[in-house]
Design a binder for these strands. Structure first.
Lengths: 413, 413
DNA sequence: CCATAATTATTTTAGCCTCTAATAAATATG
DNA sequence: CATATTTATTAGAGGCTAAAATAATTATGG
């Protein structure tokens, strides 16, 4: 009850412009900034609630109706927003205008670069998938850039949309991405200081943004997936390892060097299973896809990949079930640590964890509940990724969308 | 090297006005907002760099000199800022004006409410302690409010400063504080829904803000202590338990219900030592002040409090040293988890951990280093609280200062 | 069925406030 | 006294808000 009450107080306390002393001692704020932000807010409001009226926008944004009106005029002129008149509703009075993002005005591309393959998705502004494409991975930076460019162009042709309507691209890579969203360091791909964003921006003539794959997936869950109304959640997923996207206070938290979120290396068991990082007892040594496959191999039940593990579990294979139960317990413990520390509104499981959830969660939940403070546990949920294997490319699209929403140049294009 | 490079990129990427979609869909931005923020930035700049010139302020804030000039005029009229002319420096040209916070214009009060006692500190705007006072604790909410009020008034009399020059009060309490900074839930004090801030605001006629004690201490480290130029750090301290202040991206992270930061209940050892929370193997069951005293008691070396533990350790008491070594190892493990997850610039130890640091750290460091990812470890430090037993009340002062800096009403007062 | 009133929604207008850039003023050095 | 440096002032442009005006409906009454 107290929690609910405290929750209500949130918006009263939240400062719109968070005055972060250090970060803010550097850049200027002027009326242009205001307009840009307000335009973005209007656009975002329409995106979030298609069919909203100008008055409704004024209500949820707090922006005066007159201002909304002016902003809408420019957005309509730019062809980014469409307005229709609502059919008579029986109420007396002039009917609402209803506002929509003009889906015809542009498309976004999202890319997941993985070791095995590159996954490219084309979508409308509202996140409707228009087409997707997978090409083999394991490429040099240059080859990957070319493959991505060609893939996007091929998809555009396939869907019959002219190249200049591409409004932005976002790329998720398995590695460290600089805080400017350009340079990537991806050991798994053997990329070092790879300015993929720069190369692609030049090649495609449109803004391209890089992001760590798991963080991208987290953003996707926020914009398109199961956390659309949640400002504080943790996304946990991964392949060989386990990564985390810490969505804190309405944005991904990257930490001072972009290194934050290495949930896979939380230590669960002193002197436990050895991990690729050189330490022992890491979370990912128990619950990553590779770890599960390895545990199975050790137990004499080799499996090729997660789908085959799932199949074996569905068939009732005892060894597989026991192994997954064990992984589930460790999963519960790891999630408990996350919950205790960050008290998010929810924890979202992606990748193999989501695929195997029905076998992991029965053991995970009790362990999680036993190890999480009651106040925190009661105010949160554990859920599965809504986007599944599209999480990372949709993350790219979400990032492209966010940048599009925030950059006036793009809106005015 | 890459880390250093990525670090440089930070400011290019950081948006001044972080467009946090959800949080921002509610409040309005207008030119007033700009002025308020700019005034706060100017004040903050002077506070951070006393003696700075208007031109210097313009440079670090990016605000035009004309705007700076106007803001300074009002700040001077309000008596909050002083301006002096620099003595001739040998350089040619008109000498700088130098700007200072007018220390005489107001004082701030910070309060630490603990179970045993209430600690009240009076300070100038620049954080210079003018006086402090300790009164017995264990009070009802009403009694505590009265004690705090009387204590502050007594200190003001003692220092000879009229009551109306009190510009703000911040209070750290051991418990959950609502996100509006008013209502506190403090089981240790047996307070429930205690609107201490409201009562005190009414009683003192000045803005009073509540904060969790550890979070307050973290803010104090940022404003006055060892993290003045660090936007991302974790403060770890506590008495009976272990709390954490997560300072992320230039502000305390509270989480959706204000519950974030319970570092004390990270699980370090499956089925480990039992904790007051009902679970086993919690961080605080190994390293809190109470835990250390309990471990010593179990080892047959009862100690009354942390100073006496320290004395015994200094005398070379083997049992005490071994116990602290053991605690240090667990401390290292817990800090490694924090580091891996959040990759902060530094972790600051306060309270008993700081007092016993010389005995804890030798065992802590190797454990920490073995369990933290190299990239993260290399980009961070572990340090001790610079404020020691004044951390919490100074945190109250820091909070009062922050609010004072951000609220135009206060500046215009 | 038509005209008018009532209701609700949006746009325009006027006013105020902010930031910026250009201009003017002030001060110390050589 | 001329010059360089720093600060103050003054239009000018753009943004937001409140209030008035306009627009598009439905209800009502003849």
């Amino acid at each position: 009850m107290v929690v609910a009450m405290l929750c209500q107080l949130k918006f009263a306390a939240a400062h719109v412009l968070s005055y972060k002393a250090d970060a803010m001692l550097t850049k200027k704020i002027n009326s242009n900034t205001i307009r840009r932000i307000n335009a973005a807010r209007v656009f975002h409001g329409i995106h979030k609630q298609p069919g909203i009226s100008p008055r409704g926008l004024s209500k949820i944004t707090g922006i005066d109706l007159a201002t909304i009106s002016i902003i809408l005029t420019t957005l309509e002129q730019d062809g980014v927003v469409l307005r229709r008149t609502e059919a008579p509703t029986g109420r007396s009075g002039r009917p609402n205008s209803t506002l929509f993002i003009n889906e015809a005005s542009g498309v976004l591309a999202g890319v997941a670069v993985e070791v095995e393959e590159i996954h490219i998705v084309l979508s409308s502004f509202s996140g409707a998938r228009l087409g997707s494409l997978r090409v083999p991975g394991s490429l040099s930076q240059e080859a990957a850039a070319a493959a991505i460019k060609n893939g996007i162009l091929a998809l555009l042709r396939q869907v019959g949309i002219p190249r200049k309507r591409l409004a932005g691209v976002g790329v998720g890579v398995p590695g460290l991405v600089g805080l400017d969203g350009r340079i990537a360091l991806a050991p798994a791909l053997d990329w070092h200081d790879a300015d993929l964003a720069g190369v692609l921006t030049a090649g495609l003539g449109v803004a391209v943004h890089l992001e760590n794959d798991i963080k991208a997936a987290a953003i996707a869950e926020h914009i398109f997936g199961s956390c659309q109304h949640t400002a504080d959640f943790v996304y946990v997923s991964g392949r060989s390892g386990v990564g985390g996207g810490l969505y804190l206070g309405g944005a991904i938290y990257r930490g001072p060097h972009g290194l934050a979120g290495e949930v896979g290396h939380m230590k669960l068991v002193p002197h436990g299973r050895s991990c690729a990082c050189g330490a022992h007892g890491c979370f990912e040594a128990y619950v990553s896809e590779h770890a599960i496959l390895k545990c199975l191999a050790e137990a004499g039940e080799s499996a090729r990949d997660i789908p085959s593990v799932r199949a074996a579990a569905l068939e009732g294979n005892e060894v597989v079930l026991r192994t997954l139960e064990e992984a589930g317990r460790h999963l519960g413990l790891g999630l408990a640590n996350l919950a205790n520390l960050l008290a998010p509104s929810s924890i979202i499981l992606g990748g193999g964890m989501a695929a195997l959830a029905e076998f992991l969660l029965p053991a995970c939940r009790p362990e999680f509940e036993a190890n999480t403070l009651a106040e925190i546990r009661c105010a949160m949920t554990i859920a599965l990724s809504a986007l599944q294997e599209f999480a990372i490319p949709m993350g790219g699209i979400a990032i492209a969308l966010q940048h599009f929403l925030e950059e006036p140049g793009a809106i005015r294009a």
